[in-house]
Amino acid sequence: MTLPDAIRLTEVLLALALLQQSLEHLRGFRDERALFLARAVLCGLVLLGFASPWPLVAMAGLSLLILYRFQGPYNGGSDRMGLLSLWCLTLASLAPSTPLKELFFGYLGAQLVLSYFISGWVKVVNPEWRSGRALRDVFQFSAYPVAESLRPLANRPRLLTIMSWAVMGFELLFPIAMLTKPTLIAALVVAGTFHLANACLFGLNRFFWTWLSVYPAILWLQGRLVH
């Protein structure tokens, strides 16, 4: 995948992810509706490729107003990754030279690798994650399961310990998948399935779309680093 193709594909996928979030906010308060209606229009312009890169630049500016409105991210990690992607794409699109474009876009791909590895590291150094207890707590009493019918999963400690180690193992080994294109594609399929499961079990739909939208950046970065 060439750099312009990868950047354009990431732009399109991010615009779709941000459009999905913006539409959800249109049922909110008046000030939210104004901010997110503006963002939905800008997403449409990015999708159409109209007046590039200015709609992207405007979206980056608007992201600061949205951060101010909520005094931080609305949806934690998924908003942070969306912001990172938006700003990297904006800087890459404004950069005057190819090496600078590669630097900004490559940084996005590198952050995606780190997002998995650091997430795995934080878990593996925690004894509660290693014993499966942390995941049991999630199902037993946290606010995250989308349905009460999921809470009995807390009574299956062996399954949850296996699931905990599967998640930690995958996240920690993710950087190794960068060695070849086929292993990276396989890892991204597994990661996408993981985000899909989180969307279904914990209602984290924004993580699914946001992380998926950054996959072209990591695919490009792998090709750039290895070849």
Binding site: E24, G28, P73, Y74, N75, V146, C200, G203
Partner: peptide, 20 residues
């Protein structure tokens, strides 16, 4: 469950309330 993928505003608002 799949319906939550494209549209889940109430749940996302609940998660924002947890953050708050």
């Amino acid at each position: 469950m799949a319906a939550r993928l494209p549209w889940n505003p109430l749940w996302n608002e609940s998660l924002f309330l947890v953050s708050l």
